[in-house]
Amino acid sequence: MAEQVALSRTQVCGILREELFQGDAFHQSDTHIFIIMGASGDLAKKKIYPTIWWLFRDGLLPENTFIVGYARSRLTVADIRKQSEPFFKATPEEKLKLEDFFARNSYVAGQYDDAASYQRLNSHMNALHLGSQANRLFYLALPPTVYEAVTKNIHESCMSQIGWNRIIVEKPFGRDLQSSDRLSNHISSLFREDQIYRIDHYLGKEMVQNLMVLRFANRIFGPIWNRDNIACVILTFKEPFGTEGRGGYFDEFGIIRDVMQNHLLQMLCLVAMEKPASTNSDDVRDEKVKVLKCISEVQANNVVLGQYVGNPDGEGEATKGYLDDPTVPRGSTTATFAAVVLYVENERWDGVPFILRCGKALNERKAEVRLQFHDVAGDIFHQQCKRNELVIRVQPNEAVYTKMMTKKPGMFFNPEESELDLTYGNRYKNVKLPDAYERLILDVFCGSQMHFVRSDELREAWRIFTPLLHQIELEKPKPIPYIYGSRGPTEADELMKRVGFQYEGTYKWVNP
Results as ranks from 00 to 15, higher is better:
A149N: 13
K47F: 04
V169H: 03
Y147G: 02
S179G: 09
F138H: 03
D58H: 11
K171D: 02
S132T: 15
G14A: 15
V77L: 12
I234S: 14
S189L: 12
H201K: 01
N229E: 07
S179Q: 07
R192L: 13
E99N: 15
M125I: 12
R182M: 12
M37G: 05
E193C: 05
V208W: 03
L214N: 00
N126P: 05
L142W: 00
N126S: 11
L130W: 14
Y118D: 04
N122C: 15
G248P: 02
V5E: 15
I167Q: 03
I67G: 02
Q178W: 14
I167H: 04
L128Y: 10
R74Q: 15
Q209P: 04
R182A: 13
D79C: 08
A116P: 14
D79W: 06
P172G: 04
Y197V: 00
I234T: 15
W53Y: 11
Q178N: 14
C232H: 07
S160T: 12
E239A: 02
Q178Y: 10
F88W: 05
A39W: 03
N185T: 11
W225N: 00
F237W: 11
S84C: 14
A90N: 12
R74K: 15
R72S: 00
G59N: 14
F87I: 07
W54C: 07
Y202K: 04
T51I: 08
R166K: 09
T151V: 11
W225L: 01
E156C: 11
Y202T: 02
N226T: 09
R120T: 13
R9Y: 15
K46C: 01
G247S: 06
S8G: 08
N226P: 02
G163T: 04
E94A: 05
A71N: 03
G254V: 01
P86A: 13
Y118L: 07
N165I: 08
G163N: 06
Y49P: 01
A217L: 00
L211W: 02
L20G: 00
G131K: 11
M207Q: 07
I52G: 00
F138S: 00
D194W: 09
A44E: 00
L137C: 15
I168F: 06
T91F: 08
A217G: 09
Q22P: 08
K171Q: 03
F102V: 06
G248M: 06
R81Q: 08
P144E: 04
V208F: 04
G163Y: 05
S179R: 03
Y147H: 01
A103R: 13
F87M: 09
V213N: 05
E170P: 01
S29V: 07
S179C: 05
S40P: 08
L203Y: 01
K238E: 00
N185G: 13
E170V: 01
V213L: 10
A25F: 13
A231K: 14
D200L: 03
T151W: 10
N64H: 13
Q161C: 09
L20M: 15
E148H: 12
F56V: 04
E99V: 09
S184D: 08
N226K: 06
P240G: 10
Q195C: 12
G242E: 05
V169S: 00
D24W: 07
Y70F: 12
E19T: 10
P86G: 07
I224E: 06
E18Y: 07
V68A: 05
R166S: 05
Q178I: 12
I167A: 06
F221N: 08
L203T: 04
D30F: 09
T31L: 08
Y197S: 01
S132C: 15
D42A: 01
S132G: 09
L121R: 01
A141I: 03
E239F: 01
V233W: 01
A127V: 14
S157M: 15
I162V: 15
R166V: 01
V213C: 11
Y112A: 02
W164A: 06
R175I: 08
N64L: 06
D30A: 09
L16V: 10
F138W: 09
F250R: 04
Q133N: 10
L61T: 08
F250K: 08
E252A: 11
N226H: 10
L130S: 15
I255E: 05
P223W: 06
L140D: 02
N135P: 08
Y107Q: 03
I230V: 13
Y139C: 05
K205M: 03
Y147E: 03
I48Q: 00
L190Y: 07
T65V: 14
L142H: 03
F56A: 00
T10H: 10
L183D: 02
I35R: 06
R57P: 00
I255Y: 02
A141L: 00
E93R: 13
A44N: 00
L203M: 03
R104V: 09
N126T: 14
N122S: 12
H124G: 08
F26R: 10
R227H: 11
C232I: 02
A109Q: 13
G23W: 12
L140R: 01
G110P: 03
T91W: 09
D30L: 13
L55S: 10
L75V: 11
A39G: 03
I196H: 01
Q28T: 08
N64C: 11
H124Q: 13
R182G: 14
E94S: 07
I199E: 02
Y107C: 09
P92F: 12
F241C: 06
H155K: 14
P62A: 08
G163I: 00
N210R: 04
F56M: 07
F253D: 03
K82G: 10
S180P: 03
L177Y: 09
S132F: 13
Q178L: 14
T91R: 15
Y107H: 08
M212H: 00
P240T: 13
